[in-house]
């Protein structure tokens, strides 16, 4: 199949940047979206042009490194799929694809489609952990956790921190990302101890990093490659209310 690509090219954070047209020829429907970009890049390198910069790492849909906005949707049109797990059979011969980076003031563009997501690391550093003294390995089941709580925390922990929620949110808010970590840890006994400091610290870091405020559009859930639910945002709101008197 042959495709026309409009790709955002930007030389650095200060560069203005613009969409440029490329042709992707003889693309196998079985290749992944990133493999298609690899092939386009090979051709660009042969021509002596700068290849398209894009983030990627595991290419197994678990690391959260890859991602760009394809035709207006983070990670492209397939539900609950990262860009690396998106296959070209999702598209048809002759299609036009527009590729843009995550657009958020908190994510400065490094080059082309690659953005700097340190702002999300800052949020995690502001409370997305539990402080535990490490010592001897404890007995199994020493700390009892009910099955529903374990499942709930695990669903929240599915977040891979890719930033698609921020990219999709009309407000550029990182609420789904932040709430997934807050909800996961607040549900587990190890995390309950620091629940109040965590929710205050993480929501403060979110605002300081330049992310917007959640206004319940739910675009985040719709574009999350892991299907993280906005029920965790409600959970974060409950955690915030609980922390208010403290």
């Amino acid at each position: 199949m042959n495709l026309t690509l409009y790709v955002w090219r930007q030389n650095g954070p200060e560069d203005k940047g613009k969409l440029e047209q490329y042709e992707a020829k003889n693309v196998s429907p079985d290749s992944s979206f990133l493999e298609m970009l690899d092939e386009v890049n090979e051709e660009l390198i042969e021509k002596g042009t700068d290849p398209i910069e894009f983030d990627n790492d595991c290419r197994e849909g678990i690391c959260g490194t890859c991602g760009c906005v394809v035709n207006g949707q983070p990670h492209g049109p397939q539900e609950q799929t990262t860009a690396c797990q998106l296959h070209m059979r999702q598209f048809s011969d002759g299609d036009t694809l527009t590729l843009e980076p995550w657009r958020a003031s908190a994510f400065p563009i490094i080059k082309d489609l690659a953005v700097d997501r340190s702002a999300m690391d800052n949020i995690i550093e502001s409370g997305g952990y539990t402080s535990a003294y490490t010592g001897e390995v404890g007995e199994a089941n020493q700390t009892l956790i009910s099955k529903p709580d374990a499942d709930y925390a695990m669903d929240a922990a599915e977040c891979i921190g890719c930033g698609a929620c921020v990219a999709a949110c009309p407000n550029g808010s990182a609420m789904l990302f932040t709430s997934a970590k807050v909800a996961q840890l607040a549900t587990l006994p190890q995390g309950k101890i620091e629940a109040a400091e965590r929710v205050n610290g993480m929501t403060e870091a979110m605002l300081n990093a330049g992310f917007g405020n959640c206004s319940n559009h739910y675009e985040c859930e719709a574009s999350c490659p892991k299907g993280v639910s906005v029920k965790f945002i409600a959970k974060l709101n409950r955690e915030y209310l609980k922390a208010l008197p403290k």
């Binding site: 906005v69 407000n171 330049g210 675009e219 859930e221 719709a222």
Partner: peptide, 28 residues
């Protein structure tokens, strides 16, 4: 909050598809 939310995306997408939100939500 609206002003902050606008500042959180200084450069708009050339193409953006909304999947869940409504006209009412976007025009609050």
């Amino acid at each position: 909050l609206t002003l902050e939310n606008r500042a959180a995306r200084e450069i708009e997408y050339n193409e953006k598809k909304n999947l869940r939100t409504s006209f009412g939500a976007r025009t609050m």
